[in-house]
């Protein structure tokens, strides 16, 4: 008897075919995209390098040693030392923590603000929509870099301490980032709210909050994921430009952008390329990987793009 039961079970099991979830399908498709996978692994490597790497460094971050200043790359200092005798590689890793954190945190903030405001304005339409979208239009019509420059100047005028600037820069970047996201989410919500499943939520008598957060926003997640990925790349670029100009993260806190500030000094620029080429290259490689990954995600998530 038991063997028969087992047989039935054995036969039944493969019959229960559950179609894989959207995320599993996506991952399967993404795995076929070699470029996107290389990018993903590179990004994981960058994270490990930045957040775990410093523990393996024999050098202490801010220990200055004038006797060892301006050494070219060697076996003991792989990327040389800077004007204060600090190890460039260690600083690069610590700067990675700051730059990656700023990129991710400002992305999360933009997404939270953008998705919320976009969903609300697409769901309620009318006056709410008008106010939110005009505000987004206004913010989008001031070009990003000048807007960031002004906000950076305000930060410097207010003499915000170096360790707090970081957080304000995250907020600044999300101020610049949310309008485009809100517009995108709003467009999605406008078409989603006309679909039958939303009529079902109406029949069920769900509250607006539940409709928005449990039914509408989750449906925009695939799109949000792609935009969020690309948004991180944009934030890292903006932060580095701002820090390079001395209006973003300021020393002693290292960031990839302000490490490149060395190139503003003609001697360092000409004679000591190890001071500014590694951070520049790191920014470039990180941003390229994020863009490629985002592009791969877009292809993997959008069935229409399957060609």
């Amino acid at each position: 008897m038991e063997t028969v039961k087992q047989l039935i079970y054995k036969e039944k099991k493969p019959v229960k075919v559950k179609s894989p979830s959207l995320w599993k399908q996506t991952y399967r498709r993404l795995k076929k995209n070699k470029l996107a996978m290389i990018s993903l692994f590179f990004l994981i490597f960058m994270f490990l390098l930045s957040f775990v790497g410093p523990y393996f460094s024999p050098y202490i971050l801010d220990r200055t040693d004038i006797a060892y200043a301006n050494r070219p790359p060697s076996a003991s200092h792989w990327l040389g030392t800077d004007n204060y005798g600090r190890d460039v590689l260690t600083r690069l890793m610590m700067a990675g923590q700051i730059s990656l954190t700023i990129g991710l945190a400002s992305m999360f903030l933009s997404i939270v603000i953008g998705a919320f405001l976009g969903a609300v304005s697409g769901f309620y339409r009318g006056v709410v929509d008008l106010v939110i979208m005009r505000l987004a239009d206004i913010l989008m019509s001031i070009p990003g870099l000048p807007l960031l420059l002004i906000m950076g100047a305000i930060l410097s005028e207010w003499k915000v301490p170096s360790e707090y600037r970081l957080y304000i820069i995250m907020i600044m970047l999300s101020v610049v980032g949310w309008p485009a996201l809100a517009r995108l989410v709003r467009g999605q919500i406008l078409s989603l709210r006309e679909q039958p499943f939303m009529q079902a939520t109406e029949v069920l008598g769900l509250s607006d909050r539940r409709k928005i957060f449990h039914h509408l926003i989750p449906n925009t997640l695939p799109l949000l994921l792609v935009v969020a990925t690309l948004n991180v790349a944009g934030s890292i670029l903006s932060e580095s430009a701002l820090s390079f100009l001395g209006l973003g993260v300021v020393p002693p806190t290292p960031s990839w952008g302000n490490m490149m500030d060395a190139a503003n000094n003609y001697m360092d620029f000409r004679k000591r390329p190890w001071l500014w080429i590694p951070p520049g290259l790191t920014i470039f490689l990180t941003v390229v990987s994020i863009n490629l990954l985002g592009d791969g995600l877009r292809d993997a998530l959008d069935p229409k793009m399957k060609r």
């Binding site: 790349a233 670029l237 580095s240 430009a241 390079f244 952008g257 490149m260 190139a263 620029f269 000409r270 390329p273 500014w276 080429i277 520049g280 290259l281 920014i283 470039f284 941003v287 390229v288 994020i290 863009n291 490629l292 592009d295």
Partner: peptide, 18 residues
């Protein structure tokens, strides 16, 4: 296209000058 999109403007300017 991806490389051009991802270059920080200041870094590529500096590289070209160098």
């Amino acid at each position: 296209v991806f490389a051009a999109m991802s270059f920080p403007s200041f870094f590529i300017s500096l590289l070209f000058i160098k």
